[in-house]
Each structure stands twice: as C-alpha cells, then as structure tokens.
C-alpha cells in the first residue's frame, strides 16, 4: 500500500458516499445517470468475486463490501425508491455499445483465459467507460448540480491517483499490470474535459453549465 493508492481508494469511497447521500438526503436522483450506476454495480460485482475465493486483508475485504453495498443501494434508490425523480429522457446513452465491445475485448486480451480473470478484465475495461452515460447526460441537460460535480471530481481523481500508484509500484516493486494501466489512462482521459470545467467553474463558485 502507498499513499497514492490509499488516497485513491479514499477518493473513490468519498465519491460513492457523496452520491448515495445526495440522492438519499435530497430524495431525488435528478441529473444522475442510472445507467452509469448500473455499470458501476456490474464493475464491482465482476471484479470482487474473489471475495468468495481469497482473503487479502481486512481493509481489502471491507472496502470491497462497502463498494458493492453502496453501488447496489444507489441503483435501488434510483430505479426503485426515487424512480419518480429519475430523468430517463436524458439518460439515453446506449450502454450496449459499451458492454458488447468491452466483453469481446476482455475475452481477446487478458492475462489468463480463466473465468475469474476474464471477469476481472471485463470489469477493468468496463470501469474505464462506465462514466460515459453520466457525462453524456450532463452534455444533454447542459448543466450539473454542484454536488454532482464533486462526486464526478472524486470519481475521476481516484483513478488518476491510481496511475501514480502504478508508477510508484513499478519503480519500487517492479509490479505493473498493463491492462489496468491502459484502461486507467483511458478512464482518466475521459474526465479531462470535466476536470477543466470543474477547476475553471465550480472551484470559482460558478454553476457547471455547458454552452448549450
């Protein structure tokens, strides 16, 4: 464990908690892409199946349980409890255009052709594009609530910190995982446009609104 991975995990945890609390307290999921949240639930489910097969540490196991629990709770709030506030018209990204290519790629490019490894690889590839429905929705509505931008910032920051963690681990441990690194770079690049808007607008107290 290093400081970058620790703060990456904490940033990811913060994002998940911010979103869950935002929906719960405001009793509304307006502006939130339910499709992205379903993709994240799939990402955690397919990646953390090793909860059933191996124990790494209390930290590792508890964080995985929290991620899975919160992501399913968020999906439940969006599609069940507060479904009346779900903005399905703007959440129109065709996720099948993500899942099918990612699934095919996971079968073709992986470290080991075993079920757990292919599911893990699928999860890594899917995570790198899972935020697209959310970013697409914001581009369609032309704006985002400030709390939603904080959620997105933490979500984007987490994988950016993981990139530094992988540089650290390569230099000090000789460890690297090309699949995770390439997917992590793609994932972080997808947030660059948002990061720019976040720094130039939200951090200056303005509302995040895109030129219509």
């Amino acid at each position: 464990m290093n400081i970058f991975r620790l703060f990456g995990d904490l940033s990811h945890l913060a994002a998940i908690i911010i979103l869950l609390l935002k929906i719960w307290k405001s009793r509304s999921c307006a502006g939130i892409s339910g499709k992205s949240q379903i993709l994240f639930a799939i990402v955690f489910t397919t990646r953390y199946l090793d909860l059933l097969t191996s124990f790494i540490s209390l930290y590792n196991t508890s964080m995985k349980m929290i991620y899975i629990g919160c992501s399913y709770a968020t999906v439940y709030l969006i599609y069940a409890k507060f479904r009346a506030t779900y903005d399905g018209n703007h959440d129109s990204f065709r996720v099948e255009f993500l899942i099918v290519p990612v699934g095919g790629l996971a079968v073709l490019i992986n470290h080991d052709f075993s079920l757990l490894e292919i599911l893990w690889t699928f999860s890594i590839y899917l995570e790198s594009v899972a935020i697209l429905p959310q970013l697409f929705m914001i581009s369609k509505t032309g704006e985002a609530e400030t709390i939603t931008t904080h959620y997105l910032f933490c979500q984007g920051l987490y994988r950016a910190l993981y990139l530094i963690n992988w540089i650290w681990r390569f230099y000090f441990e000789g460890f690297f995982d090309m699949i995770a690194i390439v997917a992590g770079v793609v994932q972080t690049i997808l947030y660059c446009d948002f990061f720019y808007l976040y720094v130039t607008k939200v951090l200056k107290g303005k509302k995040l609104s895109l030129p219509a």
């Binding site: 991975r5 995985k64 470290h111 893990w120 460890f175 690297f176 699949i179 995770a180």
Partner: peptide
C-alpha cells in the same frame, strides 16, 4: 513481465 495476476488492489 506483467505480474497482473497479483490482485491486491481494489
């Protein structure tokens, strides 16, 4: 070689 199979990250 990538030691990708060592899954200790979240």
């Amino acid at each position: 070689c990538p030691i990708g199979s060592r899954k200790d990250e979240l």
